[in-house]
Amino acid sequence: MNTNNNIQDKIDSTLNALDTLNSVQVSPFFKDKTMQKMFAEKQVTSKSWSWFTPQLQLATLVCVVIVNVYAIRQINSAKYNDAISSFASDYGLNSDSESSFLKL
């Protein structure tokens, strides 16, 4: 029975230690703040395009327009048409000189 008293003494000392603990003071809005942080809807933003600022978009648009205007002028020039005609004739791609076996 001595071991039984020893165990009871340990239990009593443990319970007495709990009585010496001070109560914790918590902010009255702690629960509300925690719940708001847990269930707040987070906006998902794409970080891969964040570097593409409006200034960079404008500069890119200007470059694309300039390249397109230059390409259209080159296509409309006589040199381009002559070069394409000579290329087509060199490689036998002229549609007017060949007859197709699919024609009826």
Results as ranks from 00 to 15, higher is better:
residue 1 M to Q: 09
residue 1 M to I: 10
residue 3 T to Q: 07
residue 3 T to F: 06
residue 3 T to H: 15
residue 3 T to M: 08
residue 4 N to W: 00
residue 6 N to W: 05
residue 7 I to F: 07
residue 9 D to F: 06
residue 11 I to L: 05
residue 12 D to T: 02
residue 13 S to V: 08
residue 14 T to Q: 11
residue 14 T to H: 00
residue 15 L to C: 05
residue 15 L to P: 06
residue 16 N to R: 13
residue 16 N to L: 03
residue 20 T to N: 06
residue 20 T to R: 11
residue 20 T to S: 14
residue 21 L to A: 08
residue 22 N to M: 06
residue 22 N to F: 06
residue 23 S to D: 15
residue 23 S to G: 01
residue 23 S to L: 12
residue 24 V to D: 05
residue 26 V to E: 06
residue 26 V to L: 12
residue 26 V to M: 09
residue 31 K to L: 15
residue 32 D to T: 10
residue 33 K to G: 02
residue 34 T to M: 04
residue 35 M to S: 09
residue 35 M to R: 13
residue 35 M to E: 04
residue 37 K to H: 12
residue 40 A to I: 01
residue 40 A to H: 07
residue 41 E to I: 08
residue 41 E to N: 02
residue 41 E to Y: 02
residue 42 K to M: 03
residue 43 Q to M: 14
residue 45 T to Q: 11
residue 47 K to N: 08
residue 51 W to R: 04
residue 53 T to Q: 04
residue 53 T to P: 09
residue 54 P to L: 00
residue 54 P to Y: 04
residue 55 Q to C: 00
residue 55 Q to P: 03
residue 55 Q to A: 12
residue 57 Q to P: 10
residue 57 Q to N: 03
residue 59 A to C: 06
residue 59 A to L: 11
residue 61 L to E: 08
residue 62 V to I: 03
residue 64 V to I: 12
residue 64 V to M: 02
residue 64 V to R: 05
residue 65 V to A: 06
residue 66 I to V: 14
residue 67 V to R: 11
residue 67 V to Y: 07
residue 68 N to F: 13
residue 68 N to C: 15
residue 69 V to H: 07
residue 69 V to Y: 01
residue 70 Y to Q: 11
residue 70 Y to T: 08
residue 71 A to N: 05
residue 71 A to I: 11
residue 74 Q to Y: 02
residue 75 I to C: 08
residue 75 I to P: 00
residue 79 K to V: 10
residue 80 Y to G: 08
residue 80 Y to T: 15
residue 81 N to D: 10
residue 83 A to R: 01
residue 83 A to T: 15
residue 84 I to Q: 13
residue 84 I to W: 03
residue 86 S to L: 15
residue 87 F to K: 00
residue 88 A to C: 15
residue 89 S to D: 01
residue 89 S to W: 13
residue 89 S to R: 13
residue 89 S to M: 09
residue 89 S to I: 04
residue 92 G to V: 02
residue 93 L to M: 10
residue 93 L to P: 10
residue 93 L to D: 01
residue 95 S to A: 15
residue 98 E to G: 03
residue 99 S to C: 13
residue 99 S to F: 12
residue 100 S to T: 15
residue 100 S to W: 03
residue 101 F to A: 13
residue 102 L to A: 07
residue 103 K to F: 08
residue 104 L to R: 15
